[in-house]
């Protein structure tokens, strides 16, 4: 498979000394979805802004389709589409006018720009709203139009910067379905997200980004496997009981036990067998769990293990 996106030793420090990117390298194969996963302020958006020619890097190499984006930004721009986290569409234009405008600014002929707008409005279920001003759109509709705008010129590479941040579950699901359909077309996608579920569902490979560095990379399954355990969740009547259980069960877990209020999460190497041991031990100590659940590790667990903190705990920067 040819490489569609290549990033080598990318560094960026903003005015005022904020180090956005320490040293980032990764490669994306053509026709795959690469997820950049990380908390707010990890540097995901900075990577996207550099690759889409909006921001120059301090040093390092950023290439799309073999084109150095710093040296030949114009060629790069003809090959990429960008859908941003703040829906970048004109509030006072209609859906149709927005897409036509973006088509023209992509240097499509009037006729092609018009045809593409109506095709995309149809594909994205926005036909009925084509002639409505954007300020009357719902959040989900606006994101769909934003995504459509990124696709007007049929770019081979698509950048989706937190495409579903702030959307309700229904709209998020709708958008995921649209993105999945796109992937069937063979478009290469770079997706940034802070939602582990989103990366898990859409991405073929994931790079976990934190403090301007890639701290782990692999397929979603590889990342979960590197965590190396199933998770046994136990709930108790109160926090005190949970704490007591944590002391009792410490030796049985394959990694430190996380306590979240009255709930314990035990990474266990051998799910079923260890569960029996855990229950025996609790019985001996006369501790009664209120709820028991055995599950596969989520990317949340992976993130937690990698960064030692919950993604949503980090401050925005």
């Amino acid at each position: 498979m040819p490489t569609a996106i290549e990033v080598h030793n990318l560094r960026k420090t903003f005015k005022g000394g904020v180090r956005a990117l320490e040293d980032v390298s990764f490669q994306v194969e053509a026709g795959t979805v690469f997820g950049l996963l990380g908390p707010n302020g990890a540097g995901k958006t900075t990577i996207v802004r550099i690759l889409t020619t909006i921001l120059p890097p301090d040093s390092g190499l950023a290439m799309i389709m073999g084109i150095d984006v710093t040296k030949s930004p114009q060629l790069a721009r003809e090959r990429l589409g960008l859908a941003g986290q703040a829906a970048a569409v004109d509030e006072r234009l209609t859906g149709e006018e927005n897409l036509f405008m973006i088509g023209r600014l992509n240097h499509l002929s009037k006729q092609v720009a018009r045809t593409r707008s109506s095709e995309l409005l149809h594909d994205f279920g926005l036909e009925h709203a084509a002639k409505r001003i954007l300020s009357t759109y719902s959040g989900g509709m606006r994101r769909r139009l934003d995504l459509a705008a990124a696709l007007v010129a049929q770019p081979p590479i698509l950048f989706l910067d937190e495409p579903t941040t702030g959307l309700d579950p229904k709209s998020r699901n709708d958008l995921w379905e649209i993105i999945e359909k796109l992937l069937a077309d063979g478009t290469t996608v770079l997706l940034t997200t802070q939602y582990l579920e989103e990366a898990d569902r859409l991405a073929t490979r994931i790079a976990v980004v934190d403090h301007g560095r890639v701290i782990a990379e692999g397929t979603p399954d590889e990342l979960k496997a590197s965590f190396g355990a199933t998770v046994l969740e136990l709930s108790f009547q109160d926090e005190g009981t949970a704490a007591k259980a944590q002391r009792t069960l410490g030796a049985l877990a394959s990694a430190p036990i996380q306590q979240l209020e009255n709930r314990l999460e035990l990474p266990v190497a051998d799910g079923a067998a260890t569960t029996v041991l855990v229950l025996e031990r609790l019985l001996d100590e006369k501790i009664n769990p209120t709820k028991i659940n055995l599950r596969e590790p989520s990317l949340d667990d992976v993130f937690l293990a990698l960064t030692d903190q919950h993604p949503s705990d980090q401050e925005e920067s």
Binding site: T53, I54, R77, L82, N106
Partner: peptide
Amino acid sequence: QKGIIERFHALPMTRSA
């Protein structure tokens, strides 16, 4: 102040337009 300017800059359009 708007996000649309970022999109403009990722397009092959003339910047000074």
